[in-house]
Amino acid sequence: MARYYLAKTEPEEYSYDMLEKEGKTVWNGVKNPLAQKFIKQMKKGDFLFIYHTGKEKAIVGIGKVVSEPYQDENGLYVVDIQPYKRLNKKLTLSEIKKIKEFQDFYLVKMPRLSVMEVPDDLANLILKLTE
């Protein structure tokens, strides 16, 4: 069964729009050991909520993992992703913080973490709130 993860990106650097335009990218540049752990456990077919940081601070779209994790030239784990779906409604960090189900979510507890696993119940809630 496919799992969900969340990956943060600075939209001025790389946005969901850019992913749609390019059609595929390598999700790289992640150095944090915990974020690396999450990338290493990804499987082809998993989904990645794309979260824009900076001024936007919102989940804006979903990417699909289209490769198994592999190491780049720096020895960091990366995956290839493709756009899957632009969300009908963005889900902002301020909205997430108001919902009790998210109080223990990495996005709230560890705001500097750039890639994180999303438990099934929270993934389903995100999907419901962004329809």
Rank of each mutant, 00 (worst) to 15 (best):
V79A: 06
V26A: 07
Q41F: 07
K109I: 12
N74S: 13
K109Q: 13
M18S: 12
K85I: 05
E22W: 14
V118Q: 07
K21Q: 14
Y70M: 05
P83D: 03
I81S: 02
K89R: 15
K64F: 00
E131A: 00
G63I: 08
K43W: 00
K90C: 00
N124G: 07
K24E: 15
P11G: 10
K97I: 02
V118I: 14
R112F: 10
R86F: 03
P69L: 01
L6S: 13
K64D: 03
K128A: 01
M116N: 08
K128S: 03
E95D: 11
D80T: 14
L122P: 03
E101Q: 13
V118T: 15
V118N: 08
D120E: 15
Y5M: 12
L113A: 03
L122N: 02
D104Q: 13
M1P: 13
I96P: 01
V78K: 06
L76Q: 12
K89C: 02
L93Q: 05
S114W: 13
Y77E: 04
R112V: 13
I126M: 01
L125E: 09
G23P: 09
K43C: 06
L6K: 10
I39C: 04
G54Q: 09
E20D: 08
K55R: 08
F102A: 07
T53C: 02
E95P: 02
L107T: 10
D17H: 13
R86P: 03
F105A: 08
G61Q: 05
